[in-house]
Simulated scan of single mutants.
Amino acid sequence: MHDTRYRDTRYIVSDVMTHTVVALRPGAAFKDIVKTMRQWDISALPVVDDDQRVVGVVSEADLLRKEEVSDGGLDAYVDPLRRPDLAKAAAVTAGELMTTPPVTVPPDATLARAARTMARGGVKRLPVVDGDGVLKGIVSRSDLLKVFLREDRGIAEEIRREVVAHLFDGPYDAVEVEVRDGVVTLTGRIRDTALVPVAVRLVRTVEGVVDVDCALAGPRRQPNLDPDLPQTEGARPA
């Protein structure tokens, strides 16, 4: 029976997040928020309480509500469903402007989970918080792409060590692994071709892999040394 287990070496959020974080207090003034965003060239800021717990997030979209009102874009009497937007347009502090509850992610989350959280929340940056909600960092879309900067050589070695060596019987180099620009090519002959889809799936989980081209084949057929004799699996009783 094949042992299909291998050590999980996937990157997690704490590996790529930004540890130095610019955060706001709930009492931060509107103009100070705008200045901070421009100074640090960021589009959203977490809001923390006195214990550094994240209580909300202020984004550029929250700030732009005020611009919409000044241009006559919001009318609470015409569209009652947009009254919360009108309230934000009148806000003057981070506590009034922020979106709650905040969309966050833990430090030990996989990059795939962080990407899904961003997509579902429609956000570009996520506060990273511990189990108590305390701010530990920020992870952005660009942070999640860092894994694709891995060198091909490092990706290939991880695949050989963590996938090939555990999945297939035979010599360490029975399956050849080549990586070019993140695209992995697997070649060689293996005993059990049923393991091919398993190999492809595991290789795709290696951080930095862009695509997988699998050319693995089964063992060579033994030549028929005496073609005149029928091929039987065993002798039959007379």
Rank of each mutant, 00 (worst) to 15 (best):
I12V: 15
D49V: 04
V103L: 08
T100A: 15
D71S: 10
M98P: 04
R116M: 12
D51G: 11
V69T: 12
T104S: 11
R25L: 12
V128S: 05
V47C: 04
V48R: 02
D108I: 04
M37H: 01
L24R: 09
T93C: 10
P26V: 09
T18G: 08
D15F: 00
R113F: 09
P106L: 09
G131A: 10
L81R: 11
T36P: 01
D41L: 02
V58G: 07
V134L: 07
A44P: 00
L97E: 14
D85E: 15
D71L: 15
V128A: 01
V129F: 08
R25H: 12
M17P: 02
L97K: 04
V92E: 15
V16T: 00
D75T: 10
I42D: 10
V22D: 06
D15M: 02
I12E: 12
K88T: 08
K146A: 15
V47W: 03
G121Q: 02
S59F: 03
V57D: 04
T100D: 11
P26D: 02
S59A: 13
L111E: 08
V16N: 02
Q52S: 13
V55S: 01
D15P: 03
I42F: 04
R83P: 00
K124W: 02
G122Y: 05
D50W: 00
D41E: 11
V134G: 06
V21Y: 05
G27D: 15
V58M: 10
L126K: 06
V21D: 12
R25P: 02
V69D: 10
D50L: 11
F30K: 07
D130N: 13
A87W: 03
P102A: 12
A89C: 00
V134R: 15
P26Q: 10
V69A: 12
D71E: 15
V21N: 00
A119T: 12
T99P: 08
R141Y: 04
V55R: 01
L64E: 02
T117P: 03
P107S: 03
V147S: 05
L144F: 09
K66V: 06
D41V: 09
L74Y: 13
E96L: 05
A115T: 12
A23N: 03
E67G: 08
V92P: 05
L111A: 03
R125D: 05
A23P: 01
I12T: 13
P106N: 06
V103C: 02
D79E: 14
R120F: 07
V123F: 05
Y11R: 09
I33P: 06
L149G: 14
A87M: 10
D50P: 00
V54I: 11
T110C: 03
R141C: 05
Y77K: 12
T36Y: 06
P102E: 09
T99K: 06
T36A: 14
A87P: 01
A94K: 00
A112V: 10
G131V: 04
V105K: 01
R120Y: 11
G27V: 01
A29L: 12
P127D: 08
P46C: 07
P26C: 08
P84I: 06
T104A: 13
Y77G: 05
D32V: 00
R38D: 11
A112H: 06
P107M: 04
I138Y: 01
